[in-house]
Each structure stands twice: as structure tokens, then as C-alpha cells.
Amino acid sequence: MSRVTSRRAALATGGAALAALAGCTKYGDESQQPEPPPSSAPASGTSKPAGGGGGSGGGGGGAPALTKTADIPVGGGKIFADKKVVVTQPEAGSFKAFSAICTHQGCTVSSVSGGTINCPCHGSKYRVADASVAGGPAPRPLAPQAIKVTGDSISLA
């Protein structure tokens, strides 16, 4: 009988361990990768649209356009999850970009509202102006990303 008891105990212990492991992944997507080290490329800082209006929006001969300047609300931003970047416009005509990967546990941020970039996993919030931590468990700001504003187009630099 002890052989049956030890088998049941082993199965119960294995099941509990599996349940604990599954619980660790419930907050994020299995495809989430840990945050890459900060880029050595300098951040764009404040970018102003250049040139006269009416451009073709091609992004200036380099990377294809990520979005149009009109698509980024003043005081807010837009997340491009496929590119793992969030673009903000803290003040009219000033565009900034940051990594969309939360510095807490690597989840992708999900919204920009109320002047903050928000992570759905554990509630971290980052300011749209500089991606500094506004609240939550995040240990550091979102990493800056370089962008290029040409006419009415924004592209990754």
C-alpha cells in the first residue's frame, strides 16, 4: 500500500508544481521576451516636423513610415506593439519614442491615457514626456528609441 501512497503523493506534488508554474505566466504573453539592453543609438529627444506640408509621407528615404504625426494625440501617444515601441507627443509638435516593453517584468504596455503609458500586467505607469516611472512596480523608465519626423511622417531612425 505504501507504493500506491507514494505514487499519489508524487503525482499530487507534480501537479502542484505545474499549477505554480502556470500561474507565473498568466500575466504576460508567452511570446514576451525580456527587455533588450538599451540601444546605443541616441534618442531623438524632441523632434519637430520638418519641411513644408503635403509630403508623400515616405519617412525620408530610410525606414518606412511608422505613423503620421496627426495620429499621435497631444498629451498622449500610440503603441506599436509589433515594433515594440510607443510614440508620444507630450506637447504640440514634440514627438518622442520609447520601448513598449515594461521594465518590471517585460510585458508590452497596452494603453496611453491620462498622460501616462500604462502596463496591464502589474499597473506600472510611465510619463508620456520622458517615460519616467509615474507609479507601480517598474524599477526604471522605459528605454528611449530614436525616431525621425519628416513632414507629417514618423519613422524609426
Score class of each variant (00 low, 15 high):
4 V>T: 05
7 R>K: 03
12 A>Y: 01
12 A>Q: 02
15 G>S: 12
16 A>G: 09
19 A>K: 00
23 G>K: 03
24 C>P: 00
25 T>L: 11
25 T>I: 07
33 Q>D: 07
34 P>W: 02
37 P>R: 08
39 S>R: 07
41 A>E: 13
45 G>I: 09
47 S>P: 00
50 A>V: 14
51 G>E: 05
54 G>R: 04
56 S>P: 11
59 G>F: 00
59 G>I: 00
64 P>E: 13
68 K>Y: 01
69 T>H: 10
71 D>Y: 00
72 I>H: 04
77 G>I: 02
80 F>E: 05
84 K>G: 02
85 V>Y: 07
86 V>P: 09
89 Q>T: 08
92 A>D: 15
94 S>C: 07
95 F>H: 10
99 S>T: 13
99 S>D: 14
100 A>C: 09
100 A>L: 12
101 I>K: 03
106 G>D: 04
108 T>V: 13
109 V>K: 04
111 S>E: 15
113 S>P: 00
117 I>S: 09
124 S>M: 05
130 D>P: 07
130 D>S: 11
134 A>L: 11
136 G>V: 15
137 P>E: 03
137 P>I: 14
142 L>R: 03
143 A>L: 03
143 A>N: 12
146 A>D: 07
148 K>F: 11
149 V>T: 01
152 D>Y: 02
156 L>C: 10
157 A>R: 03
